[in-house]
Design a protein around this nucleic acid. Sequence first.
RNA 1: CGGGAUGUGGCUCAGCUUGGUAGAGCACUAGCAUGGGGUGCUAGGGGUCGCAGGUUCAAGUCCUGUCAUCCCGACCA
Length: 481
Amino acid sequence: MFHVSKNKQFVEKVTAMEDDFGQWYTDVVKQAELVDYGVVRGTMIIKPYGYALWENIRDELDRRIKETGHTNVYFPLFIPESLLQKEKDHIEGFAPEVAWVTHGGEEELSERICVRPTSEVLFCEYYAKNIHSYRDLPMLYNQWSNVVRWEKTTRPFLRSLEFLWQEGHTAHATEEDAAQETAKMLEIYADVLENYMAIPVLRGRKTDKEKFAGANYTLTVETLMHDGKALQAGTSHHFGDGFAKAFDITYLDENGDRQYVHQTSWGMTTRLIGALIMVHGDNRGLVIPPRMAPTQAMIVPIAQHKEGVLDQAYDLCDELKDIVRVDIDASDKMPGWKFNEYEMKGIPVRIEMGPRDIAKEQVVLVRRDTGEKEFVALAQLQNRLPQLLEDIQQNLFNRALAHRNEKTSVATTMDEFAKILDEKSGFIKAMWCGDNACEEKIKEETSATSRCIPFEQETVADTCVYCGKEAKELVYWGRAY
RNA sequence: CGGGAUGUGGCUCAGCUUGGUAGAGCACUAGCAUGGGGUGCUAGGGGUCGCAGGUUCAAGUCCUGUCAUCCCGACCA
């Protein structure tokens, strides 16, 4: 039915992921026109299609953040060095990757100014001034911004000198209130990932070694990429009153007693786009889950200069506009070129319409996730299309979940641990004694880090996988981005 | 910050060993045909070879320096 063009030297545009996953990623990012490299090393230009993906994630997340009572604000890009110094662990954690402003014009500044790597201290400084009474609490702020971290090695979306994110900063009367907030926001992150981006997550707590600099504890949603490496997709931190004490953030309670506030912060970044690519993508390029796809269906007219084809295709586009996010490519590129282009961009469904279809009052639907084609009568299309999109959404989630399960193993000895990493990669469930030294050693010897201590605990052995002493808890381990 | 590599039209690269007035493919522009998996033909536009200095009658090519980027390791969302 589909005749193959004569001079068929189909140019493989992206490196096969089996051959070189890193190169595959770079190829997709470039060829799906998500980013260009910036002029300064490690920076990126997010192009229209890449930014459209970010806008969708942002809007979805923003809606949930607002629904849970938070308000958006905007704090400055700059932090004076003295302010950053106030919380000891925090500055120690971030100092190595801070970009400093030392001059204003030609004049050297009396105090260096830091370009924010994160904004905890600014919020703290503000809270110290603006929180007085228990009636002021909770203070639930969020901001959408860029931050800068001077990383040594960079990759688009996964690790760049500058990236976009949302950072929530909240202050609460009690430790329990803060704990609830921390958990609530993690659940929102999980919801966006699973139900919007079709990326299954592992919910858990970070070990002390991996927690945020200055936090009591850090909750995380961990995801698994197609190559078996883990990616931290969102974190939610409970600060207790550590920052409050460093910044003197206090309020008067109902009894007139002076109390420290309890704080949280939580963030998600443009890194999510990296996750999207590496979870759903394939050797033809991106695969975007329908719910978040800027364009859900692309109409490709066939033999479009033939009588009536384009008119019919435009009519179809108009009809579908109220039902799905649909677009039409009526450029005079070859159909084959368009097929490849929109597969590269991960558009969930392609609608082909040519003279033969028009004669039969049908169209051809081709789904991006499986490549399956089906013929659908025009009269049925308005029912079938939303259904198909939903199928694709579900299939992507199920597929990713099956992959993660398949790539999750149990290790009870370090030999097993090493063997799994070597042969299979993915998540490794192993017991841990709770000693930081064992965690360090495991990283040193295998380059795997602890990903999280899952909320749903189980026991796969009685002893620590490294030292053999009594095990305290189960930890998910893995090599990570 | 250690190890390796590379800088030549928008992109990918050839040219350098053995100096002699810059080349290909893709992309772009125009036209005709084509159109169910990256279409074909024809005609065009576009580069002083990362930067600085040196050797030479002559430097993309040789020498010195410098800057940048990429890949691999230690730190990170």
